[in-house]
Design a protein around this nucleic acid. Sequence first.
DNA 1: TATTGTTATACTCTATAACTATA
DNA 2: TATAGTTATAGAGTATAACAATA
Lengths: 158, 158
Amino acid sequence: MNDLDDEIPEPADFGPLSGTVSYGIKRAYLRVIRDLEASLSPLGFTPPLLAALSIVAATPGIAPARLAAAMGHGRSRAAPLLDHLEGQGLLERRAGPDRRSIGLHATAQGRTALRRLKPVVAEHEARITASLSPAEAGALPVLLERLAPDNWAGRESS
Amino acid sequence: MNDLDDEIPEPADFGPLSGTVSYGIKRAYLRVIRDLEASLSPLGFTPPLLAALSIVAATPGIAPARLAAAMGHGRSRAAPLLDHLEGQGLLERRAGPDRRSIGLHATAQGRTALRRLKPVVAEHEARITASLSPAEAGALPVLLERLAPDNWAGRESS
DNA sequence: TATTGTTATACTCTATAACTATA
DNA sequence: TATAGTTATAGAGTATAACAATA
């Protein structure tokens, strides 16, 4: 507008977080989560609901505590998610190996929902990786897995 | 424990989000943000406070709305952050080019705090990239910048 | 005494809209 | 009428602690 603009220096180095992995991850997360939320919202899903149902469908009989751990949360985070999914008939809480344990199972309706969601997630993924070359888009999940391994498989010595 | 364990299938493919950039970013974000919070907490900082002070220090005179945009948020997110930082004497709100505008400036105390924070952030960064080779640790910020460009520099045509 | 699922609680983050002052 | 900063409000996400039932 006027010469006062000149008082704002050129972008250079804004200290501790300039160019860090940390800050890059944060920016990427904000972009990704917003796009995914917008993609899932018309179908009545949120990212955590999708993650929970996906993991249960792929791991019939998984316990709530283990599901929460796989998602990177504490035990108590599972209950409201499961209440919501069970209330919509997408999964069931059945008896587990213990009488104090519970086994989670996706219903036929839940599996159908996942099939419907799959292309939506694929489009989301294509959208966020559009600015990357195919090689880069392939390399990124590998780097991220090294940075923060998926503890879902996490079968301890047990 | 017993044969019931066999009912839980091997980890294979848990549907829509298996191996996606999206899910990898989410896992990485959770790990990074928790480590950074734990690192900054003893010094009375949080990740958003550090980001705000860093950007102000590197861009004297920046307006609150532009600071918020640089951090990927709406205008209203800036006020409580600035209240907190100003209350601790780390930055000042001064008159801007307009009488309705405000220019933000880090105080000497604020710049000192950033100097103290710098090694803490460097240690955090080293910790989260410890499982990556130097080449990978160098490549990751570039990929993330391509995925979600930093809009801080964002000098529009204006 | 430890573990599982759940509930209660509080706190943070975030988005939206409304309000005031200025342009 | 539009813009800048702020305030108010509400909602979602998360963590901690505490509870009841079972091992």
